[in-house]
């Protein structure tokens, strides 16, 4: 344990092995006095119950209601696939033209891919700097905290904080015009694809960086020396030596970023000036009109899409071994 041991972060702390579930011998050997502390089912019950009521239950209900009927003011039990039919209305018939759903997914996937690529490169470079270029643990912790502290502050405020900088009369436009670089304000800085991507990178690079830091901390630094002695340059080392060893961190970070962007409605809403479509926004709009069953069907489809992506990624890594 040489580095950033206590740094808070979802998947930060390094360790060698995981306590396997069902590995009961160690804790209960000898004469264990009777106590609630020796009864795992009593200890786990609160967590299991909360997860059941507020996570598993709602998901099952969403799946069920996605097959229900609805009117303008109520939802009614039924078994109909009409909601799914509505979600994909015209998707096959109108090919090669894209239907609304496909176009929305394509747009969301585009954001996903761009944000993923930027946060991956940025997260990797920042993690590299903290782990390999900084020699003292205390400096590492300070730099790590600098990157993670904003995570504990409000997303909405961090979004609206861009307005005085990117707006028509914002700092950047003022500066550019003052320098005579442009004669009129640049319009695409705010409420555009650009500002949405900027905000995503601003908000979520930390989700990519922290797991990669966690992976990098376990890499024996002598490997780098060995590669260098063998004549490898920095880029070669980064791509062929470090990146493969960071694969678990990269995969976990990627899952975070991809799932957040896929389901987002807030960032795209605020930074896109409520003008850009996303899967999450479609669901939100339908909920506002109380079209709950079709919103549920959309949520199920979104979930399916996200699961396929995660499934692809987790085939590359075992999450439990990474704690």
């Amino acid at each position: 344990m040489t580095s950033i041991e206590r740094a808070p972060g979802p998947l930060t702390p390094p360790s060698e092995e995981v306590v396997a579930p069902g590995h009961e011998a160690a804790a209960t050997h000898g004469i264990a006095p009777r106590s609630i502390l020796n009864s795992p089912y009593a200890l786990i019950a609160p967590l299991a119950i909360v997860m059941l009521i507020f996570f598993v239950g709602p998901l099952i209900l969403t799946l069920i209601v996605s097959f229900w009927n609805y009117t303008q003011y109520s939802i009614e039990p039924a078994f109909t696939t009409v909601n799914y039919y509505d979600v994909f209305y015209g998707c096959v018939a109108r090919l090669p033209d894209l239907c609304v759903t496909f176009a929305t997914y394509l747009s969301t996937l585009k954001f996903c891919l761009i944000v993923w690529a930027i946060t991956l490169i940025l997260g990797f470079v920042l993690a590299w700097f903290i782990v390999f270029e900084i020699k003292t643990v205390s400096t590492q912790i300070v730099l790590f905290l600098i990157c993670t502290i904003p995570f504990w502050t409000s997303n909405v405020i961090r979004m609206i904080a861009w307005i005085p900088l990117l707006g028509r009369n914002g700092l950047i436009n003022d500066t550019l015009m003052g320098l005579g670089l442009t004669s009129e304000p640049i319009e695409w800085l705010l409420y555009s694809d650009f500002s949405v991507i900027l905000a995503f990178v601003h908000l979520y690079t930390m989700f990519m960086m922290v797991p990669i830091v966690n992976s990098m901390l376990r890499i024996d630094k002598e490997i780098i020396e060995a590669a260098r002695d063998a004549g490898a340059g920095t880029l070669t080392i980064a791509l062929l030596v470090i990146a493969p060893l960071c694969r678990p961190g990269i995969v976990i970070g990627s899952i975070f970023v991809v799932t957040i962007v896929m389901g987002d409605f807030l960032t795209i809403g605020v930074m896109g000036g409520q003008q850009i479509a996303s899967v999450g926004k479609v669901i939100q709009t339908q909920l506002n009109f109380l079209q709950i069953p079709i919103a549920a069907a959309n949520a199920v489809v979104l979930l399916g899409a996200v699961l396929v992506i995660i499934w692809g990624m987790t085939r590359l890594v075992d999450v439990r071994r990474e704690l």
């Binding site: 799932t259 957040i260 999450g280 939100q284 549920a296 979104l302 979930l303």
Partner: peptide, 16 residues
């Protein structure tokens, strides 16, 4: 629960 898109969780709980 951690990586589930928030809108899905929110919809589910509201619905429940």
């Amino acid at each position: 629960s951690l990586i589930m898109p928030s809108i899905v969780v929110s919809l589910g709980i509201g619905l429940e």
